[in-house]
Design a protein around this nucleic acid. Structure first.
Lengths: 227, 227
DNA sequence: ATTGGGGCATTGTGATCACATTGTCAGCGT
DNA sequence: ACGCTGACAATGTGATCACAATGCCCCAAT
């Protein structure tokens, strides 16, 4: 567990902590979260936990069940498809709209991040793969000074995160056609259509590899597993 | 001010109250919101206000400035364009994905809502126009049992709401090609492409009428008004 | 008259407490 | 042995309090 940075409000620290743990899947779907429980673990009062948890709930990262329980939502096949479709819609839009603002130093940073992803894949560090991959996408989209879409995209990531981890951990090997290289090439050529295709392919590759997992249907709650 | 329904948590009541006031533009851009101030007005403790305000902040409806002040964000021309583009992306997607689930009784409800909009326009009730129009769109998209996109769309509405009101109030007359009728016709025929076109045209009509307002640039903060 | 400083008011934050509601489980009755 | 009931534990919620930080404003000094 990371130390709390001193110039950060407690509720922000809690939020970022929970958020990053959800994004990289360290908190699993179905996990129950209680205010007092987390307060005891993190050694703060229940108040900042409430704030963080409610914010995550409003972003769809946790689900408030009935009147008492908060859990990390289970994934269904339909939800998964919809989340991926929305990722493609929003992220291709965000990428194309960031394109005019890309400088060479931004491309350098993206190449550096892509290298970090390769390292994480080589090391088999699933949590780093998720986090650095998200950082790659985010630092691409953030070049657009008008930031409306990134929070929406991150909401999708939050909902996909916990499930992705359990899914990816079932992959024997994370193969990747390097769509990030295609995206970087498109950035260098200022080719919006190629960039859009690269981002969409990148996302679809992830979907395809998850769907190729044997027994993946066991992880979808709403899809009754075949006998 | 509406009475608090008894089976509603206080913070939910506050949230919905602020939210609907933002959506219909009853709270203007630049308006400063303080926890204690609202607590005094609504006669509740500061705690549920904090919750509601922070949630609205995470949805982009209010902006936390520096360390102390919370204000309703000002609109810029660039933000406005991006918000509208994202509305088109997400809402056409949501409409098309809701199409398979539309029953005849759903269409009845939509026609009823469309009629309410006409009444509100005839009465010149700007707040009702906004609220009922949003209800029309929402009740269309909500037919899809997989609800991921609606919260994202509502976040866009929240950011557009306060600005729309001051803009629409400058329209001498709210003319409307009735795109809702086109949408309803597309629903009846189960024509996805026509539905998509109707929704996109509906949104673009709104943009066009706002952009046609003389002196509209005075409302965009980032566009310096001519001397 | 203008400007800088100091004190007061206001604000957000977080801890603690009190309370209502709900889940859980032991113990009793059948 | 099974089911119901009542009490206790746990949980979310909201109010109140204390505190630090920031803004504001009046007053004094130049």
């Amino acid at each position: 567990m990371q130390e709390k940075s001193s110039d950060l409000k407690t509720h922000q620290w809690v939020y970022q902590l929970l958020r990053s743990n959800l994004l990289c899947g360290r908190i699993e779907p179905g996990k129950a979260l209680t205010i007092r429980g987390l307060a005891a673990v993190l050694d703060v009062s229940p108040m900042p936990i409430r704030e963080a948890l409610h914010r995550l709930a409003s972003e769809g990262a946790v689900e408030v069940k009935g009147n008492r329980r908060m859990i990390v939502p289970d994934m269904t096949a339909e939800k998964f498809n919809e989340l991926c479709e929305l990722r493609i819609l929003l992220e291709t839009h965000a990428a194309v709209n960031a394109l005019p603002y890309i400088e060479t130093e931004d491309i350098d940073r993206l190449e550096q991040l892509d290298k970090q992803i390769d390292d994480a894949i080589a090391a088999g560090n699933i949590e780093d793969i998720s986090l650095v991959n998200q950082e790659f996408h985010r630092s691409l989209y953030m070049n657009n000074p008008v930031q409306i879409s990134v929070p929406l995209i991150e909401s999708l990531w939050l909902q996909l995160g916990p499930f992705s981890r359990v899914a990816i951990s079932r992959l024997e090997k994370v193969y990747l056609v390097d769509r990030h290289q295609e995206a970087i090439a498109a950035l260098k050529q200022k080719d919006a259509e190629a960039l859009k295709q690269a981002i969409e392919s990148d996302i679809r590759d992830g979907i395809a590899s998850i769907k190729s997992i044997k027994g993946i249907h066991d992880f979808f709650m709403a899809t009754p597993e075949p006998i």
